[in-house]
């Protein structure tokens, strides 16, 4: 696999796990990486307090920005799913 994807997945996972530890108050964090010939997919999911994803649009924290720019620069796809009290699930996908 291209080293750029490797670094991106590692850094994004690190940032997402950090965020979950810092903010989610969850008891469990699940990190899943699926690598296939034509793609790599990362999911970081927690069962914590969640948040309203609409508020994410106005957030410009450095951690979040770095995730967005890493995903954009490699033409990947980033999705946040969250609801208050229902945990958070973030998916990143890169097609090679």
């Amino acid at each position: 696999m291209d080293e750029r994807y490797e670094v991106a997945i590692f850094r994004i996972a690190q940032e997402l796990v950090n965020n979950a530890i810092k903010h989610s108050k969850s008891r469990q964090i699940n990190v899943q990486v699926i690598q296939e010939q034509e793609r790599i997919n990362l999911v970081v999911q927690d069962n914590g307090i969640g948040f309203n994803p609409d508020k994410l649009k106005d957030k410009n924290t450095s951690g979040l920005n770095s995730i967005r720019s890493r995903v954009e620069s490699l033409k990947g796809q980033l999705d946040f799913f969250s609801e208050p009290q229902k945990g958070t699930e973030v998916q990143v996908n890169f097609n090679f």
């Binding site: 899943q32 699926i34 296939e36 793609r39 997919n41 999911v43 796809q77 999705d79 998916q91 996908n93």
Partner: peptide
């Protein structure tokens, strides 16, 4: 309320897992 691309990735994850 998701993009078709996202659904596609998730579907592939399910097939793989």
């Amino acid at each position: 309320f998701l993009g078709v691309e996202t659904i596609n990735s998730y579907r592939k994850n399910l097939l793989f897992k």
